[in-house]
């Protein structure tokens, strides 16, 4: 083995290197390009900040309104509009649950189709296409379109959230399927299992914790989104919130926002517990 490398030759190379400084190779190797990128980036940052116009007089006037809004949180009013808040909350919760269930149910087959290691190419392309469309269209835009079609109310919100859930869940679940351990699935296939059995025994156990975690996270997102969608007329607590703002009833608005925060935090807490359990 040592015969292949003459000992004095290796020595000479090492002697040259000893005593020289060692540094991690830079990300961009060409020095001029590296500096051009750094300087260019800084210049752009300065220019970008300088281009934002601020009307300081308007800001000064607005401070009062901002203060009123913030101060409202010290005395939120749950009572005056209690009926409207209750109805809005109920509507949001119904929207959240219904859209999550429907969205997740549709997402699972699409995720299977969008995983390259399971699906043949044509199916993969179609499913990835559906995901791309769902993700490209922002919730608000979809909601505006659906409100235009179905009119004001929670139906438009429900459809919007179901649609958005598909893009979110299918994509992330498909990625989890693609990164699964091949050998476990291969072992199930080697027993002579048919396709459905193979998915049930070889694939499902590997991705179920992620599916549950993502589903709960999506419920959380859907609830928060339901508060936003009301602003464009798609029903839910957002509609109540919008009305409160329009009437300058900041104390009622504060009450609604506090409720949303409490519910989101509760969901977060529950999802933490569930995810720890299923792992």
């Amino acid at each position: 083995m040592t015969a292949a490398l003459p000992p004095d030759a290796t020595h000479r190379e090492l002697d040259d290197i000893l005593g020289t400084r060692w540094r991690r190779p830079p990300l961009v190797r060409r020095a001029w390009l590296r500096w051009a990128l750094i300087v260019g980036g800084l210049l752009y940052l300065v220019a970008a900040i300088a281009s934002v116009e601020v009307n300081w007089a308007r800001v000064y006037e607005g401070l009062d309104r901002g203060a009123a809004f913030v101060m409202a949180f010290t005395r939120p009013d749950f009572v005056t509009r209690a009926d409207a808040i209750w109805d809005g909350m109920l509507e949001s919760i119904v929207m959240t649950v219904a859209s999550s269930v429907v969205g997740i149910a549709i997402s699972i087959p699409i995720a299977l189709g969008a995983a390259r290691n399971i699906a043949p190419l044509p199916v993969y392309m179609v499913c990835r296409g559906i995901i791309a469309v769902s993700r490209a269209l922002q919730e608000i835009i979809v909601a505006i379109l659906l409100v235009a079609i179905f009119g004001f109310g929670p139906l438009a919100g429900f459809l919007t959230l179901s649609f958005a859930t598909i893009g979110f869940l299918s994509k992330l679940l498909a990625e989890d399927i693609e990164s699964m351990d091949r050998s476990q699935a291969e072992a199930v296939r080697a027993t002579g299992a048919r396709w459905g059995q193979w998915i049930d025994y070889g694939v499902k156990p590997q991705v179920i914790p992620r599916l549950i975690g993502l589903s709960i996270y999506r419920v959380d997102i859907n609830f928060r989104e339901s508060a936003i969608l009301g602003l464009v007329g798609a029903g839910g607590i957002g509609a109540t919130l919008n009305t409160a703002f329009d009437r300058y009833e900041y104390d009622t608005a504060a009450a609604i926002l506090l409720l949303i925060i409490v519910i989101v935090m509760a969901l977060e807490y529950v999802s933490g517990i569930v995810r720890a359990r299923v792992q």
Binding site: S183, Q184, E186, Q206, P209
Partner: peptide, 9 residues
């Protein structure tokens, strides 16, 4: 299999 390839969950 090598590395057993049991379905772990």
């Amino acid at each position: 299999f090598q590395e057993y390839a049991l379905v772990e969950r």
